[in-house]
């Protein structure tokens, strides 16, 4: 384990800590009294006060922050204000939808991007390249929620290949569950994939102009073999960065896709929780989302060091 790794890890912890503080502060200034929202507008002041006390909301902010964080460390998140069930239960239930959805769409978008990006780069300035880039330019302009709606109209309503929404649950079997995630995954992946394809293409083309590519060709390596053996790995460096950032966008993009397809994932959970002033759910879900984004980018950084040997040297 290098200094590089340790340094990155410290940054990761600091970012997570910072994120928890920001989220907590945001929840503090979030207008609306949770007790009032739960009990309804015509609740008596006494009842409201009692509930506030019961929820622990009358204690000082600093104390509540530490209760939250220490609870997080031992996996005790408390109960949802609105549903009276443990927050962990709510989150793990939602994750069973959001996580596979994010992974599926990320995988789809990476495959799409690499295939299109490499193909276009290999046929630089030919008709196929120009066409693919035109399509991808359109692809990045389409709002993913609109694409989701169009997909429902076409594949669910007209062709009836996929359900238009809802989630049967994993207990109903693997395939029905996956089937209900396909359209949302495609909707999310198309837009991200189009963007990633453009970056892959331009990165490959940029690397193609490097001197070491000429060296490889001068050794007698064919054009094709140069692409796979020399260009690709160098070209992946910027692509990886974007993938890291995109994973965050995809994860949050699920908020929207879940809304279109009526999937009870993290996104719908957090939107509902905001409306219910179910602060305890909101802060934990948002922290979880932020943590996943930060952790994924941490691994991207580690991956960098694997791909690019120069990085390790600079950071030590």
């Amino acid at each position: 384990m290098s200094v590089f790794f340790v340094k990155r890890f410290m940054t990761l912890l600091a970012t997570l800590f910072g994120a928890s503080v920001v989220i907590f502060l945001v929840m503090e200034i979030l207008p609306g009294d949770p007790a009032l929202v739960i009990l309804g507008v015509d609740a008596t002041p006494e009842a409201t006060a009692a509930l506030t006390k019961e929820l622990g909301l009358d204690r000082p902010a600093l104390e509540r922050y530490f209760t939250w964080i220490s609870g997080l460390l031992v996996g005790e998140l408390g109960n949802s204000y609105a549903y009276k069930v443990p927050v962990t239960e709510l989150i793990s239930g939602a994750l069973k939808i959001t996580f596979p959805l994010a992974i599926m769409s990320m995988a789809l978008s990476v495959i799409l991007a690499l295939v299109i990006g490499l193909y276009a780069a290999a046929h630089h300035n030919k008709a196929s390249d120009v066409t693919l880039m035109g399509i991808s330019q359109l692809g990045i302009s389409i709002p993913n929620f609109w694409l989701a709606v169009l997909l429902v109209l076409f594949f669910a309503v007209n062709l009836r290949w996929f359900p238009p929404g809802g989630f049967p649950g994993w207990e109903e079997g693997f395939w029905p569950a996956v089937r209900s995630l396909v359209l949302p995954a495609v909707a999310l992946a198309t837009v991200q994939g189009a963007m990633l394809a453009r970056i892959t293409r331009s990165s490959v083309l940029e690397v193609y102009r490097e001197d070491f590519v000429r060296t490889a060709r001068a050794k007698g390596v064919s054009r094709q073999a140069t692409l796979w053996g020399h260009v690709l790995r160098n070209a992946m460096i910027p692509v990886l960065t974007v993938m890291g950032i995109q994973f965050g966008n995809l994860l949050v993009g699920t908020v929207i896709a879940e809304n279109v397809f009526h999937l009870p994932g993290l996104g719908s959970t957090v939107l509902k929780a905001i409306n219910n002033r179910d602060i305890i759910v909101v802060e934990n879900v948002v922290l979880l989302l932020a943590a996943i984004v930060v952790i994924v980018n941490f691994f991207v950084d580690i991956l960098y060091a694997v791909v690019d040997p120069r990085l390790k040297a600079h950071d030590i």
Binding site: T15, G248, N249, G253, V255, I274, A290
Partner: peptide
């Protein structure tokens, strides 16, 4: 640090 909160999440 702000990149820990993707666009839609911060906006929400």
């Amino acid at each position: 640090f702000s990149f820990a909160f993707p666009a839609i999440l911060s906006a929400i």
